[in-house]
Design a protein around this nucleic acid. Structure first.
Lengths: 124, 124
DNA sequence: CAGCATCCTTTCCGATACTG
DNA sequence: CAGTATCGGAAAGGATGCTG
């Protein structure tokens, strides 16, 4: 147990960095948030087709986790067939500008990283 | 397969967001990068004691992955006992300011997220 | 349409023991 | 000191089938 530059505990589940980066760093959450940031609201299958290579089960799990964290909201229209719309909450919206620099960095530096990774693989 | 707002492919391994967020979003990489950002250079056991609840094996794996991506560099001093120093590369240093807003956001909003998570758990 | 349930594989990660 | 090697448990993620 120790403290970081913010004077907060950086251990186990008390660590904000691990909590937040763990959420948006999982395989799909960041993409879901970004898509919802662009589109205002999206239905389940719209999201599913936008991020086509994730299973519907995992999308469900991801959405539930984001909802539990208060980052997205889920609106159900009592119709047949059912219609469910997802959108960012205010908290979720506040996350977008915080993520933006990292997104920019990702696009700018991904080629470098991929090249470095390949080179490292060869050296082994 | 589709394109996002940047006009780039957002699928499989071609997605910068998934590549970068996947790396810094894993359980420990972000913390390692942040610590190296604060301290300039750190030895293996210094990092290990700073992030005490990760095993030495996982620290090794994490460091190797970051090195492979070109984010940190590893300097070996041929002494007995051995001494190895880790530091951020220029690429790694450029990542820090990009991560910063998200770090700030994490500290600011972690309480809200934790509260929301707990509430959601009760409702189920 | 928007899921839930189940099964299965893969990956992650911690504990422990050992080494140049 | 700074790792490597091996094992085992837990968790993440994918495929498939079923349902209100």
């Amino acid at each position: 147990m120790h403290t970081d530059e913010f004077g907060k505990v950086v251990s186990a589940n008390d660590c904000p960095i691990r909590t937040v980066f763990g959420r948006i760093g999982d395989k799909w959450s960041a993409l879901v948030i970004i898509h919802l940031g662009e589109q205002e609201t999206l239905r389940f299958n719209e999201l599913h087709s936008m991020i086509s290579d994730l299973s519907q089960k995992v999308l469900t799990v991801t959405l539930k986790a984001l909802e539990a964290d208060g980052l997205i909201s889920r609106k159900i229209y009592p119709e047949v067939p059912p219609k469910v719309e997802y959108s960012l909450t205010d908290l979720g919206k506040s996350l977008l500008p915080a993520m933006n620099p990292l997104i920019q960095w990702s696009f700018a530096n991904m080629p470098t990283i991929v090249a470095s990774r390949a080179k490292y693989g060869n050296k082994k």
